[in-house]
Amino acid sequence: MKRIEVILSGSGGQGLILAGIVLAEAALLAGWRAVQTQSYGPEARGGASRSEVIISDEEIEYPRVERADVLLAMNQESCDKYVSAVKAGGLVIVDSTYVSRLPSASVKIVSLPVTKAVRERLGKPVAANMAALGALVTFLPEIPPDLAVQALTERVPPGTEEINRQAFRLGGELAGTLIPNP
């Protein structure tokens, strides 16, 4: 049985629950089973927000993360708080726009200026969640990027498809600079 556990975390309003939904949808499109759950505070903006996605080739019973394979942290608080949920040797992707203190745990760390790049290249920071997702799927060979783009197109608010697709590709480019092509 293959089971991949992903945590997408940050501050409420950064769009991490939507990013989790798109990731789960993309996994289904690719023929995997997927479950997405969330935990958040009562605030509409601010507070801690966390979306979890489990991807598996078998029926998923326990729907929450036990030991995360990948953590996406879009702010310092979530990076500090959730890094302990990542398994040894797991991957932590941080948005360096908001995360300056990197964890010292025995994990692989990828630091990318996600929100900064979206703001500079696309003019506004609202699609930073999709840019982060674009970076994240670069490290998940189970999720073909074109299926993530298809899932994104179905799930983002109507009228914002293009800017979100651009942000997704931008995120992929940011991550691609770190991955040597075979």
């Binding site: 789960a24 089973r33 479950v35 969330q38 729907p63």
Partner: peptide
């Protein structure tokens, strides 16, 4: 809350 907010295929 888990079953209500959980999304699955």
């Amino acid at each position: 809350e888990i079953v209500a907010h959980m999304r699955e295929g």
